[in-house]
Amino acid sequence: MDTSSRTLDPSMGELRVGTKAEGPAARLGHDLTLVMDVWIAEVSWVDGRPGAVILTVQSASLSVLRGDGGVKSLSGAEKALVRSNALRALDVKRHPTIGYRSDEIVATDGGYRLAGSLAIHGKTHPRAIDLQVTDLGDTWRLTSDSVVRQSEFGVKPYSLMMGSLRVADDVTVSFSANLAKK
């Protein structure tokens, strides 16, 4: 049996979080694209196939890439406020990391299905993630989109104007990376 491990980090890809504005005043708010700037994924390989994945994300590394929609575009000060509100909601001082650990990886037609556990805000729940793999010759392109319900992990979505403008409970986590073939 041939075993090895590989490490993926932000130099190889990106981990984004997409939010949507909702409520009666949603048109005033922005759909946000956030980026997690510090993360590491350790992938264990057995006989040329992924056997386990451990992803660790530094919660405080969150930055605001952009805000779409709204009455006007987000200013630098507004991006800083959005970041501050998100870090407060995640309670990064008490919960400095977000993690995923696979228990099982099964090959699918377009890649792999990872079954494991996701830990956010001090709560851990089972989570399956479908990872698409595209062969680009010298590299593999890895992509995944998953919906995460914030309240499932004890995170209260931000709201203002007595709840008439709020961040939707469901956020989309998108991962993409290029992994060089050995």
Results as ranks from 00 to 15, higher is better:
residue 1 M to F: 12
residue 2 D to C: 00
residue 2 D to K: 07
residue 8 L to N: 02
residue 8 L to G: 06
residue 12 M to P: 00
residue 23 G to P: 05
residue 24 P to H: 09
residue 29 G to I: 06
residue 30 H to I: 10
residue 32 L to A: 12
residue 35 V to P: 03
residue 47 D to K: 07
residue 52 A to C: 07
residue 52 A to G: 10
residue 53 V to Y: 10
residue 54 I to Q: 12
residue 55 L to A: 12
residue 56 T to N: 11
residue 59 S to N: 12
residue 62 L to W: 09
residue 63 S to H: 12
residue 65 L to K: 13
residue 66 R to D: 14
residue 66 R to S: 15
residue 69 G to F: 15
residue 73 S to D: 15
residue 76 G to H: 04
residue 78 E to T: 04
residue 85 N to M: 02
residue 86 A to V: 14
residue 87 L to Q: 05
residue 89 A to S: 13
residue 91 D to N: 14
residue 95 H to K: 12
residue 96 P to Q: 07
residue 98 I to G: 04
residue 98 I to D: 06
residue 101 R to V: 14
residue 103 D to W: 07
residue 109 D to P: 00
residue 109 D to F: 12
residue 112 Y to W: 15
residue 113 R to S: 09
residue 113 R to M: 08
residue 114 L to E: 04
residue 114 L to V: 03
residue 116 G to M: 11
residue 120 I to L: 10
residue 122 G to P: 01
residue 124 T to G: 01
residue 130 D to E: 15
residue 131 L to F: 05
residue 137 G to C: 03
residue 138 D to N: 07
residue 140 W to Q: 03
residue 141 R to A: 14
residue 141 R to Y: 13
residue 143 T to E: 14
residue 144 S to Y: 11
residue 154 G to T: 04
residue 159 S to Q: 08
residue 160 L to Y: 00
residue 160 L to H: 00
residue 162 M to F: 15
residue 162 M to T: 03
residue 165 L to Y: 02
residue 177 A to L: 11
residue 180 A to S: 13
residue 181 K to C: 05
